[in-house]
Design a protein around this nucleic acid. Structure first.
Lengths: 122, 122
DNA sequence: GTGGGCCGTTAGTTGACACTTACGTAAGGA
DNA sequence: TCCTTACGTAAGTGTCAACTAACGGCCCAC
């Protein structure tokens, strides 16, 4: 997981993953979409492959790449662990609490409209 | 999201998030659990707070920190996007295809067992 | 075998970042 | 007021990672 999160920390690499998410592309095709040189992209591809986020397939002289979503399982579980049902409920409760505090009297939409008209006095 | 993913790319910072995931801790209490110096931890806390992953609350001379899961929403959605139902189906299809290609004749498990016994010759 | 695409790899440079020591600051008790 | 506690901040250093230019290795057509 350490390698996966470091791999997607780089914007170019995230963009590469988006490119090959649902189609196979060659190294050259991928490189042609970036401003950096082809070797730089090649190094990014190596990092992504070593992190288990990319599949490589050789066809003649070309190398075709495709995203490998299973490589992100660990990281996804880490993040989702911070988003458990309990926390989701806590967050919703906090938001409702905040809304109640901001507008303690308003009940219908008419009140809101009046407020908007008054607030136009900038 | 860029700042969030760079923030959790550092192992110490991921550990900090785990520590304050469901309880509030002071900067000093957090620092005491690491080998690095207190200023180093303080810098990590700043990075996490600036990335929106941490809430800070002052109480007297102490500063209390707690995880803020909403800060990871974007990143979670990015990762979960690679795990959609469609891709899951594509993955299964690809694996079945590969299995068919690898063992076009084998039908039962007997063949596999024989292979294992032969491979024990290390 | 030879020439031309397609790519990965190496060497070297530059910038980012994690860390340490030293210092500054705010709150609170003696 | 003075000291202590609990922090953050500044300055400086070493390491790692992203990039470029130059080079080397396959694979195929001829």
């Amino acid at each position: 997981m350490d390698s996966a999160v470091r791999a997607i920390a780089e914007p170019h690499r995230r963009e590469i993953l988006r490119l090959v998410r649902d189609r196979e592309l060659s190294a050259g095709e991928i490189a042609s979409r970036f401003d950096v040189t082809r070797p730089a992209v090649s190094q990014h591809l190596t990092v992504l492959r070593d992190a288990g986020l990319l599949n490589e397939r050789r066809e003649g002289t070309r190398r075709l790449y495709r995203a490998r979503p299973e490589g992100m399982t660990e990281l996804r579980e880490f993040l989702n662990g911070f988003w458990s049902d309990r926390l989701k409920r806590l967050k919703l409760a906090a938001e409702l609490e905040q809304q109640r505090r901001k507008s303690p009297k308003r009940r219908s939409e008419k009140g809101a409209k009046r407020r908007n008209r008054r607030d136009r006095r900038t």
